[in-house]
Structures are given as C-alpha cells and as structure tokens.
C-alpha cells in the first residue's frame, strides 16, 4: 500500500469524523439551548404541520430569499440545485449496486456541474459588484467560494479534460467504508479534488456552512404561531415562577 493511499485514507477518516462529530455536537448544542419566547416571524403557520411545510418551502424553494433578491436567489438556487444533483450523482461511488435514482440522475448530474460553476460565479460576482455585499464580505467568504469553485472545476476536469480511473476511485471509497483499504489512483486532478472535499468536510462544523442546521433551529421559522392557545415556558424561565 502506497504512502499516498494511507495518507488519503487517514485524511478521509479524519474529515468524516470531524464533520459528523462536529455537526452532531452543533445540532445537540442548538437542540439543548432553550427558546424561551415565541418569536415566529408572522404571518406564521399555526400548526406543526404548517411549520413543516414552511420549512419545506424554505429548504426546497428558498422562499424568503426569493422575496428578498431575485439575483441572489437565481444564482443561489442554481448553485444549490446543481450541487444536490452532483452529490446525488456521486452516491454511485459509495454503493454497489446503485439505487435507480442515482442511475437516473447520472446525465443530469453531469451537466449540473456547469450549473454549480455558473451559480458560484454569479454569487462571487455579487461580492465585487454590489457595494453593500462587498462591504460585508470577509476573506473567508471569498475563500469558501474559491473552495467550492475549485471542487467543481477539478471535478469537471476529470470528466471533460483528463479522465480519471473511476473504477479505482470507487474501489478506494468502498474500501474506506468497509475498513479494507484499497489503492488510491495517483491522478493529480483527483488528488486535488478529494483534498478540497476533505477540507470542506473539515470546516463544515466551524464555518458558515452551519446555515444548514441553523435553518431548522431558527425560532423565527420553526415555531408555530399559537401563543394564546398554548402556554409555553422554558425551563430556566419556569424557575422564576417558583421564587
């Protein structure tokens, strides 16, 4: 087994552990922190089913962003939609046999890569062109876009420029999953692609990627509007009543 293989195997185990544990901790932390007051942004659904539907619309359609700014919505939506297809397409590296949906999505996932790049390009352009967005952009905002763009472009490179040995890649990935490590193909673009992905996984729990769990824990979105009908008191606030 080559040093490279061992290095990448370790890297992916570490990145996965950091992502899963880090994100798990964040979700636990959000869940244990009380929301002492009812603060849904109204008009809000009055039932739990309604709340689920509101969150569904936020996740699937980016409803609030659509109300806010059409350009950001278009680029953001294209990017996230394309990313979803691309991720789904990549599931084939982790299973055998593959699900029908994963098989079906292959051709779409392929072109979605362009969507990803275009979306990211648009989002990045806003950080330079719109003075307000330029003002709030930090170095990490730019680096995050650079990272995602580099992942997209390196991935496309392996499909459209210099093919990589995807059978070996699949062997390597499945080996990782079964703790039976297989050789890692020594293709430079692939190495870049996977290193960047591991970076992304590592920074997940410590960066603005926390917007994903954040949305589900956002009290202004996930609370039902029923304060007159149900009394709602958090544990620390209830203690005030015992004084």
């Amino acid at each position: 087994m080559s040093t490279l293989t061992i290095l990448f195997a370790c890297m992916f185990y570490a990145a996965t552990a950091i992502m899963v544990l880090g994100l798990g901790y964040k979700i636990y932390d959000y869940a244990r922190t009380p929301a002492p007051l009812k603060i849904p942004t109204t008009p809000a659904p009055t039932t739990t089913t309604g709340v689920a539907f509101r969150l569904f619309r936020e996740v699937v359609f980016f409803e609030s962003l659509f109300k806010a700014t059409k350009w950001t919505w278009i680029f953001g939506y294209v990017f996230h939609g394309a990313l979803a297809l691309v991720l789904l397409r990549h599931v084939r590296y982790f299973q055998e046999p593959i699900w029908t949906i994963v098989a079906l999505v292959q051709p779409f996932g392929l072109y979605a890569a362009f969507g990803m790049v275009i979306g990211l390009g648009g989002l990045w352009a806003r950080r330079f062109l719109v003075d307000r967005v330029r003002y709030i952009s930090t170095l990490s905002d730019h680096l995050m876009l650079a990272l995602l763009l580099a992942i997209g472009l390196s991935g496309m490179g392996m499909k459209f420029v210099a093919h990589t040995d995807i059978v070996s890649v699949k062997n390597f990935m499945q080996g990782l999953m079964t703790f039976n490590i297989q050789p890692m193909p020594e293709d430079p673009i692939l190495l870049v692609h996977l290193t960047l992905v591991a970076c992304l996984m590592t920074i997940f729990p410590i960066s603005k990627l926390l917007h994903i769990p954040g949305l589900f824990f956002s009290p202004s979105r996930n609370q039902a509007d029923n304060p007159r009908e149900h009394r709602y008191v958090s544990a620390w606030a209830a203690k005030l009543e015992q004084k």
């Binding site: 922190t33 929301a35 700014t69 989002l123 307000r132 905002d141 603005k208 926390l210 824990f217």
Partner: peptide, 16 residues
C-alpha cells in the same frame, strides 16, 4: 436563547 446562538452561526453574508 437559541435564537441568539443559531443566528450568530447561520449567517452566510448573502446580502439579502
């Protein structure tokens, strides 16, 4: 306050 904690983490500087 969950709102305070989540809102400080979740912003992506999208500019909306």
């Amino acid at each position: 306050y969950r709102s305070f904690k989540v809102y400080l983490d979740a912003c992506v500087h999208c500019g909306a």
